[in-house]
């Protein structure tokens, strides 16, 4: 994948399939420590200990249609190729947390890419979930909470095309104002 935001889009779908009602995406660009950290945490069904042991293996999947599942392995490869790593913690019934670390200035680190597009794509895929997106860089922070938008909308669905386009611009502008350029 060309952008880390595409991996995020892919991994969030695992949380959706795990039946999560809240998914938090936390991005921290710590330039002083030369570290980029991406955390994705959900309150879905979690994994058994046995499945957790094999989950990074591309031939490990919960799918029944075929025997491969590449999402987590690809994200891990994107981290490892630039001196980083991927950790997963999960408890059955209590959700899953995935943390991925990257060397910030490594030449092989893929760019973060378009987070606004990733956010509206996940909202569209499962609009009932409360997505919380926090992005920190150089002491500044941008926070997006999908339920705040839904409350402001009253009954109008958040996945109406006009609303999604508005949300995309809202996130892009918010990131820009926090000095986070995509």
């Amino acid at each position: 994948m060309k952008e880390l935001s595409l991996h995020i889009l892919d991994i969030v779908q695992n949380s959706v399939k795990a039946g999560a009602s809240e998914i938090e995406i936390d991005i921290n660009e710590d330039i002083l420590k030369n570290l980029l950290e991406i955390d994705i945490t959900d309150n879905g069904c979690g994994m058994s200990e046995e499945f957790l042991k094999t989950v990074k293996d591309p031939f490990s999947t919960t799918r029944t249609t075929r025997k491969v599942g590449m999402g987590i392995s690809l994200f891990e490869a994107a981290a490892v190729q630039c001196g980083g790593y991927l950790e997963i913690e999960s408890e059955q019934g209590n959700g899953t947390s995935l943390k991925v670390f990257f060397e910030y200035d490594n030449i092989d680190r893929a760019p973060l890419g378009n987070m606004a597009e990733t956010m509206i794509t996940v909202i569209m895929g499962a609009p009932d979930i409360n997505y919380v997106y926090k992005h920190r860089k150089a002491g500044k922070e941008f926070v997006f909470v999908a339920d705040d938008i839904k409350n402001a909308l009253g009954g109008v669905p958040i996945d109406s095309p006009e609303i999604l386009n508005w949300v995309k611009e809202y996130i892009s502008e918010g990131l820009e104002n926090a000095g986070i350029n995509m």
Binding site: M1, L6, L9, D10, Q13, G69, M70, G71, L74, N114, E117, T118, I120, T121, M124, G125, P161, E162, L164, N165, K168
Partner: peptide, 23 residues
Amino acid sequence: GMATCGIAAGARPVMNAFLNEVS
């Protein structure tokens, strides 16, 4: 199609383009 294979091949900008046109 928005699975790993679709995303890697460029499904996200395609979906966003449809949203834009429809809106």
